[in-house]
Design a protein around this nucleic acid. Structure first.
Lengths: 132, 132, 132, 132
DNA sequence: GTGGTCTAGACCACG
DNA sequence: GTGGTCTAGACCACT
């Protein structure tokens, strides 16, 4: 399994799991229709509580990334991913602005910042950690 | 003052304050050496608790954005801003990767994402909300 | 057969089956005395478990919508449908109130809600999906 | 408090709470901006676990009915209620169709059904139990 | 004291 | 065995 939890991180475990599952879909490691591990087995694998996994799955279901299939359990939404919602756009803009401001203050040029962003996108869709 | 608190946001008040002060520096609204309002007066202006303002100032001092001046109180660090630290780079990479992954999954192209990023940087250094 | 199961729905399969059989009777696709497929064949047709079909049939028999005929197996109750029981009235009132409250809060007018309801009734007795 | 839990009901406790809070808003017992009891106190009042209350609040926050205000705790969304979303329309249509079909089969006329619906709406916006 | 998070253990409906 | 629900008790960040 390509998922790793950082117990020291200030990011909640369920949020880490949400992020990594989305990265898994972005990188092509998970395709629409693919089944995910059951909450119990994934919790056991990761060494965390099943409710924590459940919370991550529930959030992703509500956002439309996952579905509960009555026979196959939890699967990646087979009808495709949710589009760019207004809420996501707001979140993206707000976080990018905050990051960009700190980057600018610290002396990172517009070009360097743009390259960081491009690298992050490339890294996300290839699943690699390189070019970061 | 150009600072506004969003009491409904999920971002803690002290973090909002930190972000907005950094954005103020990035946009040129605040220059190195500029004095900041006292903890008391800013807290009163924003209608928030003393402790909250204090926590934001303390964090910014630790990071090197602010310093304590004998007579002027808290000022923007006159000796310049901290550079790109390893910790900042890690934070930037991690957050960008997470954002890029969700953007990609939602169907935002690499070009559209890059344009968002460039717009955020532009917006940060001009202080405008435009082109976001 | 006009029945379709939605494996992604949050409604249990047996409940979906119950609902669709009642809708079949309402629309006139099934008449009193009409034979239903055997548990085995229907389960095979729908690709679901025997137990699931059995549970739906059992519930409908208990409510009086179906009966067991010596030679034809399970048939739509030839002696007519059950009337408006107290239990049904309670269920109807409770669910309508909940739906109406959310509709009202979301800004749906009394007239628009009434039209929705009338459309649903029309749709139910004609078997169409129109005007919904 | 006007909220009552039915421990015998097949409807989950958190869902009962969600429904009753929406009914409270519909009836005018709760206005936009009004503060709600803390999860702890409401749980104590209702004799249920605070996580159950928390789940209801969280759902209502995600739907846009409630907000977390950093000073006042949980409040009814002061910027107004969410509108008629596609998801709500689907839910409404599906549930109304199922109810209408059973009502029709049981011999309830279109007029009687319409009157039930109108009564439910009236009851929801007045907060009364009458005319149901 | 507030909401948010995590863990733990249990029961149930479903298939 | 699956997800869903409920309870219980604990810690933490925030204000």
């Amino acid at each position: 399994m390509f998922i790793e939890m950082d117990l020291q991180s200030e990011v909640p475990l369920y949020a880490q799991l949400v992020d990594q599952l989305i990265e898994g879909i972005a990188s092509g490691a998970l395709h629409p229709g693919d089944p995910l591990p059951s909450v119990r087995s994934l919790a056991a694998d990761l060494g965390i509580n099943l409710h924590t996994v459940n919370k991550a799955y529930t959030l992703l279901k509500q956002e439309g990334f996952l579905q509960v299939h009555r026979k196959q359990g939890v699967v990646v939404n087979a009808e495709g991913m949710p589009g760019v919602t207004e809420a996501f756009e707001r979140k993206l803009d707000a976080q990018l602005k905050t990051l960009a401001a700190e980057a600018a203050v610290r002396g990172l040029s517009a070009e360097a910042f743009a390259e960081k962003c491009a690298g992050a996108y490339r890294s996300a869709i290839t699943g690699g950690g390189e070019s970061l």
